[in-house]
Design a protein around this nucleic acid. Sequence first.
DNA 1: GCGAATTTAGCAACAGCGTTGCGTAATAGG
DNA 2: CCTATTACGCAACGCTGTTGCTAAATTCGC
Lengths: 385, 385
Amino acid sequence: MTRTTADVTFLRGYNQALVMAVGRTTRTFERSTVVAATGLTPQAVSKVIARLTADGLIRPAGVRRPGIGKPAVVYELVPDSRYAIGAHVARRTLRLVLGDLAGVVRHSTVSPLPEDFTPEQLLDALSAGIDAITADTAPRSRLTGVGLGMIGPLDHANGLVRDAHGLRHWHDVPLRALAEARLGLPVHLDKDVTAGITAEAWRQGAAFGDAALVMVESGIGGGFWLGGAAHRGAHTNAGEFGHTVVALDGPGCVCGRHGCLEVVHLRATEAGDIARAARVLAIGVVNLLQTLDLAHVVLAGADLLRHAEVYRAAVEQAVRTDVQRTDWLAPTVTLSSLGADVIAAGAAMQVLDQLYGIPDLTLGAPPTTVRQHRPTGDYRGAASV
Amino acid sequence: MTRTTADVTFLRGYNQALVMAVGRTTRTFERSTVVAATGLTPQAVSKVIARLTADGLIRPAGVRRPGIGKPAVVYELVPDSRYAIGAHVARRTLRLVLGDLAGVVRHSTVSPLPEDFTPEQLLDALSAGIDAITADTAPRSRLTGVGLGMIGPLDHANGLVRDAHGLRHWHDVPLRALAEARLGLPVHLDKDVTAGITAEAWRQGAAFGDAALVMVESGIGGGFWLGGAAHRGAHTNAGEFGHTVVALDGPGCVCGRHGCLEVVHLRATEAGDIARAARVLAIGVVNLLQTLDLAHVVLAGADLLRHAEVYRAAVEQAVRTDVQRTDWLAPTVTLSSLGADVIAAGAAMQVLDQLYGIPDLTLGAPPTTVRQHRPTGDYRGAASV
DNA sequence: GCGAATTTAGCAACAGCGTTGCGTAATAGG
DNA sequence: CCTATTACGCAACGCTGTTGCTAAATTCGC
């Protein structure tokens, strides 16, 4: 939940999120683990653990008896205490995912969307899909909300789809409000790539450093995790990384410029030269590194995963050879840990992240624009078991 | 001051910083102004204002009598209540600046540095320069510290210069510790471009959105302000924007790659074609926009400012024509408001920002590595008038 | 002129956070 | 059985911002 002013409830949310992050990343943990990882005092950790236990988010899981002294109580996250739905809205398909508190995908479905579908048709598909996916597992009371990952441009703060590339019926559609009304659940709308990187970050915990998710799937996009939060930019439009010029005087791109990474990459794949396509992408990735100095690069997207190892190796090599002081600066390069589900899973985790992640203080923005339509006020901790 | 755990002192620092940001950006303000800008309750603002007044950071400046009711007390920042020294350490020159709490440069000097200078020589120059610049104005008690803006690679968190490009005597030099010992003042070490963007952000206040400072001066670099804070990347190495490839198969660059923005730009300037050089830079700027979606682009650097209007116009035009949905996405494009002093001024403001800016919560990083050598513990509010 | 309305501002009590001090429970080793 | 050790929480505390309410300073209406 976004807030501008800092009061004591922010402290609670923040430190609680630190503890939850520990619980998410290690299978079991105890008080001393959290103390070491967060810097909180033992007493503060006790209080937080007591709250989380009361909410059913974590639970005791035995004791550790390491030698002398009173045994330490071991805790573990209760993954099925909260669920969220994630949706990846692509041009022709709707991918739905049921994600749990640990960031694990419990169910995953793919259904086709009508050609050039309308908002109404999307809502129908969403509603039906959610009913199906939650039928046998997730009690409604543990369902925290629905995340939607879409192509842009869109306006995350106000829940508007400005224009969805290649879809005619999507101009300034207040999708978040529409979906909340239709589904009766809180809805989070974001760009697909931003959702994707959130999935990786959520699963890695609070120590996850600056990172990018590079996605190749009918275009090239990038999702960014900077300074402990998703980076969306001034208008939720960050990540149009495919439309950065890498070849002055290169071929014309759909965006109007020449020599964009996307079009150069496309030419290589059209020619069947996947190795070259991968090298081109790798150059783009190194550009990102030079600009942003990232700790992690995650590769994703259907078109990339089709030749996953070629791409991974090309990026890995470029990262090790094309950057100076690579001994010190080289990031980890990995394939998305969630495969084709990243976007949908990330969308789900954005919902959970709003409730149990680090609360964000969006400074300076005066509280003039009120959040429009929210079924039941503040959700933090609202879902009861 | 960087902290990992959130306690009530964080609240104080945060909300106090919001009020200070208001004071910095508007010449005078009153309680209702702050309430509207921050969302704090009137009573909370009263308390913060009382604290700041007691510390001498702000002072009453008359009353406003707008009609009915009790007149409102008008406050103003006391610019000369705190000073900081900023240094721009370049290859051949040392630029020193005395900046005040409002972000105004009170004094500015430039002195030559010995060719291939050593750390010891830099400290000598710093020490002498600081004595000179503070002789007639700033009482030592109001001097909050010294900021150093340098070329990288360096390690901001630990105050180390890894290698300064083109300087032989600079490998893993613990410059922050050395300077603190020599000068007897807190020292902040950072990359030049990061200091530069901090100058712009500090002067604009808390509402300053995502922004980049693009600097052309013996190379091309970028400083980033994202999500209300400087973005340094995983190893303080963000901003090597000049070494992003914009021309596959282009000329070889000093960094080992081919077709870097920097080398392509250099070829144009060497040919005397400033217009083309500006267009090349503009393409790089649009690349940044596509990737990061910025609200502001600030242009700086001696080589750029020599043809300021050519560059500004080229970037302005590219930003308006090369981005889709430019009506909505176009950032402001401005020349640095501080001219050649940006870096040094920004270095000074980084010191002030640590004390009176938004405190940062670096999450996840356990408090294992202790800050080395700090003359007198925590400086927040320590300097008394 | 003088009371009513209006606006500003702060005192006082309060709730909630993490912190500190210290007592208690649970274990292993002698 | 006693002691050292470790884990853990109750209770008091200090500090936030918040709420309730009173006081002060002004303009407006009569």
